[in-house]
Design a protein around this nucleic acid. Structure first.
Length: 440
RNA sequence: GACCCUAUCGUCCAGCGGUUAGGACACUGCCCUUUCACGGCGGUAACACGGGUUCGAAUCCCGUUAGGGUCGCCA
């Protein structure tokens, strides 16, 4: 039997990180077991069902590196993959329930009559759980169809999972309490329930279910704020799961090799943006230059930086990669390399350029750099350090004003790297301008 | 309220009957250094509580407390 898992989001217009993690775990499970991963859109609630809302889901999943074998955009043997297009199927299943005497009408809607027998769930993550269904007050007969003929989540979800031959249902723990209802439905339909796995929830800093309002709760946030998909996927996996050996940073390939659904713990996790951010820096640091270019370039283009030639852009990206932490910071970190119109950070000017003696030190540096023939990192470093020795000052006294002189700011790529990328002429011109500012 | 799940540093994750309770983020001290970063060496910081079981419990059992989830004609 081939493993078949699914991600079944509702098109709400944004992809929740919790949903993304659910998708990730389902994808991982399918891929690990040579199975299929299916995307199904649960859009029975028509009012929030738009093409853009679908696109957000596709974009988010693709961005994370998740691919699906069957879905609304590509079809498959068990479609359609949008619930809004599956009404006849639901009607057919409702007829089966009616024939079995499992439903009754209540004020125009149709309810499923619970057998009121204990339900036992063998959950991949939570283990064996027995539910007492005897109290109608806490386990009322669920509505499965509204008076207007539309169907309710619990019913369509089960029907679709049956129809699409899903073998494993991995979902958030918020569904754990709903599961006995679903199992009753499977039983009434004479179908074998899939294997369930309820994963712990992602909570915000208040310890509540992470909601739309919380910063960083949607995948779009990470896409826009310069996170690498592999870093976010890595972080999401670490919530509730550990590869062992105190490992933190893992590639998708490594995760795929190590991930195991029954090693997921059962406690909810609080989303920590700090750690995700750190992991992002780690991934950027160790990713290939090609990958970095691929991820950083869209941000550069979007910022409208006229970088001239491709070679010039690559040179700039090279010196920035070892230090930048957010891909979205790249435009800011390279912009000054391509224009003389860059802005000076007033605070940096005040602190470094206007510092007593800075003007004189810059002049000394100009004199020394002018004499440098071989405009290389090593020669430039030697020249600057010699100057510092001659002047009897710490290298920092030259480095700080020099950095502000060529970039206008106190943070950025390595100093000599910037000199090299700018070239001798532009570097010295910027120094001359800065010396004027320092003297003013 | 009923039912279900959970309980180790502030946060995430190790631990699976015998450990000086470990790693990571964050915070912080020192070193390196060319700012920021990176890196290196340290530090602060945890087994919710009470009963059992056992020679021995963070680990197993029960209870309490706390937190989360579900109880929709949302998904």
């Amino acid at each position: 039997m081939t493993v078949r898992t699914r991600f079944a989001p509702s098109p709400t217009g944004y992809l929740h990180v919790g949903g993304a993690r659910t998708a990730l775990f389902n994808w991982l499970y399918a891929r690990r077991h040579g199975g299929k991963f299916i995307l199904r859109i649960e859009d029975t609630d028509e009012k929030r069902n738009t093409a853009e809302a679908h696109q957000v889901i596709y974009d988010g999943l693709k961005w994370l590196g998740l691919d699906w074998d069957e879905g609304p955009d590509m079809g498959g043997d068990y479609g359609p993959y949008r619930q809004s297009e599956r009404s006849e199927i639901y009607a057919k299943y409702l007829a089966r329930l009616e024939a079995g005497g499992h439903v009754y009408e209540d004020g125009g809607s149709i309810r499923f009559r619970s057998p009121r027998k204990p339900v036992v769930l063998e959950d991949m993550v939570c283990g064996r759980i027995e539910f007492d269904m005897s109290n109608p007050a806490t386990h009322p007969d669920m509505t499965i169809r509204r008076p207007d003929g539309s169907f309710i989540f619990h019913f369509v979800n089960v029907v679709d999972d049956i129809e699409m031959k899903l073998t494993h249902v991995i979902r958030g723990e918020d569904h754990l309490s709903n599961t006995p209802k679903h199992i009753e439905l499977y039983n009434a339909l004479g179908e074998k329930p899939p294997v369930f796995g309820h994963i712990p929830l992602i909570l915000n800093h208040e310890g509540k279910k992470l909601s739309k309002r919380d910063g960083g709760s949607s995948i779009t946030y990470f896409m826009e704020h310069g996170y690498a998909p592999e870093a976010v996927a890595n972080y999401l996996c670490l919530l509730g799961w550990s590869p062992g050996e105190n490992r933190e940073k893992l590639s998708m390939e490594e995760i795929l090799a190590l991930f195991d659904i029954d090693k997921i713990n059962r406690r909810n996790a609080i989303f920590d943006l700090d750690k995700c951010f750190w992991l992002n820096g780690q991934h950027i640091l160790s990713m290939s230059f090609e990958r970095f270019v691929e991820l950083a370039k869209p941000f550069v283009e979007k910022a409208g930086i006229s970088y001239g030639s491709e070679a010039a852009l690559l040179a700039a990206l090279t010196i920035v990669k070892p230090k930048v932490k957010h891909l979205s910071d790249v435009p800011d970190w390279i912009g000054f390399l391509f224009t003389e119109e860059f802005t000076f950070d007033p605070e940096a000017v005040e602190k470094s350029l206007k510092k007593a003696g800075a003007a004189g030190r810059l002049q000394a540096l100009i004199a020394a750099l002018t004499k440098v023939e071989d405009w290389s990192h090593a020669s430039l470093e030697a020249a600057l350090k010699d100057t510092a020795t001659t002047l009897g000052v710490k290298t920092g006294e030259l480095v700080h004003p020099a950095r502000v002189a060529v970039s206008g700011r106190s943070v950025g790529p390595g100093l000599y790297e910037m000199f090299v990328v700018l070239g001798k002429e532009r570097t010295l011109a910027r120094f001359a301008r800065a010396a004027l500012m320092a003297a003013a």
